[in-house]
Design a binder for these strands. Structure first.
Lengths: 252, 252
DNA sequence: CGGCTGATTGATCCCGGTCAAATGAGGTGG
DNA sequence: CCACCTCATTTGACCGGGATCAATCAGCCG
């Protein structure tokens, strides 16, 4: 049974991204599309998909919406440790570990594909390119976490927020969620503060600074980057860690 | 040819750790021991093993010494994003990505096994438990990076340093590098500052506070934890993310 | 003994946190 | 349509944790 065009566009970001990490064979692509479409689920804004300590036994691939990974301390301090954008997977292979070390929440209403562990394993077993694509995804994720460490450890507030915006921009671009110099920014300042390790008040003031220096416009849940190069300079941003250009080029 | 006992003890931490992540078959264990012993190398203190932007085509397994992963900003600010302890691998599968996003340096004189990509791939292909062990290692690494993000983003200096000590302690323990309440701490205060996102001056003052509150003794490159529970409390430390207890228990 | 690296101390400053209140912007029920 | 509530953004005032600059001290090595 051929996929409808609605189905195809639903899973398109995920396929596009996997394919950028490793070129997929047509069969792998088709079987993965079917597997995703069989497990489509929805989550409302603010909903936790999975919590720290939970047992995992499926893989989720985000099809639309913004999610985040976060951790909290006993006294309520919260840190968003990463965002999850359409096309990205929540926890490929996470079922190899007994429990989640962090929680995942939907920041906006979201759609995702839920693929059970056994199914996922057999898909990967059938096609090595899929295995490698997911391995690459995990490695890139790891690189992103490292960049966040230096972001929080060594950049001042202004640089830090600028860096986050650059990263979001560059991660959304390959899945077609950037138009020109504009992308959606459907999260609260609270969320941005928790992602940058700042207080809401200071984040708000930092945003005002960025607007005043004419780097960005942020209004109505939309981010317009007025001068991307200047923003990247201010952020000391270098996109290498995202491995956007052929994660799998070399294969001597 | 049987291994000498000197050889065996050299690679013991690595085998012990892999085995804790996934039980290895005797054959996998033996073949991996041989592969490591064939590629033993040494690095001096301060030496870079690999730099940001470099191409990778082998996997290194640390046998002794302390290494670190770090990133620097153009203006010289430096952040250690993780330590690498004996038994841990530098970059399993990193060769799937074209270049390193960070650098790795030896903080002390170190010994490691260098296994070429092709050899590594064939070892993994021959035994699924090895594949899973390295996959688990990558996942745990990922979890550690996330914990570092919340450490830098939401903990104050005292908690942050305490947390680092707890983590080091719990990571060194399973490879036999903790004796009672004591472990080696062969790094400078500069290194600790770069790992916690603090200035050296403030790190030094924080250490004094920790000594004054009788939580630790740190002298002659040795850390004595006087009250581990109190230290963990002060750090809001919870070891779950390290997945120390049976990374691979559940296998229904 | 001089030069180096690392640890320590002192003085000062400022980035960013905290507290508190005001302003908007939807949403909802009367 | 308006009163009201809630949630997000914004502003103001104040404070303190941690950075910065600079000097001193302690080993260590040649």
């Amino acid at each position: 049974m051929p996929l409808s065009s609605a189905d195809r566009s639903l899973v398109e970001p995920a396929i596009r991204r996997l394919n950028a990490l490793r070129p997929l064979s047509p069969e792998a692509r088709a079987s993965f599309e079917y597997a995703m479409l069989e497990g489509v689920q929805r989550a409302g804004a603010g909903e936790d998909l999975i919590c720290e300590g939970d047992h995992v036994d499926s893989v989720r691939i985000v099809l639309s919406g913004w999610l985040c990974r976060y951790k909290t301390l006993e006294d309520g301090r919260r840190q968003i440790v990463n965002f999850i954008f359409p096309g990205e997977s929540c926890d490929a292979h996470a079922f190899l570990l007994p429990t989640m070390d962090h929680s995942i929440a939907a920041l906006t209403p979201s759609v995702y594909a839920d693929i059970k562990r056994a199914r996922f394993d057999s898909l990967l077993a059938a096609d090595h390119s899929l295995t490698e694509a997911f391995m690459c995804e995990t490695l890139v994720n790891n690189a992103i976490q490292r960049e966040w460490v230096i972001n929080l450890g060594r950049r001042v507030a202004f640089e830090r927020v600028a860096h986050l915006f650059c990263e979001i921009f560059e991660r959304l671009r390959p899945v077609g969620m950037v138009e020109g110099n504009t992308c959606a920014m459907p999260v609260t300042q609270m969320d941005l503060a928790d992602a940058t390790g700042l207080s809401v008040v200071h984040l708000n003031r930092t945003l005002q600074e960025m607007r005043a220096s004419e780097l960005i416009v942020l209004r109505d849940r939309t981010l317009i980057v007025r001068d991307l190069d200047a923003l990247k300079n201010a952020a000391l941003f270098s996109a290498g860690y995202l491995q956007l250009y052929r994660g799998g080029r070399e294969r001597e």
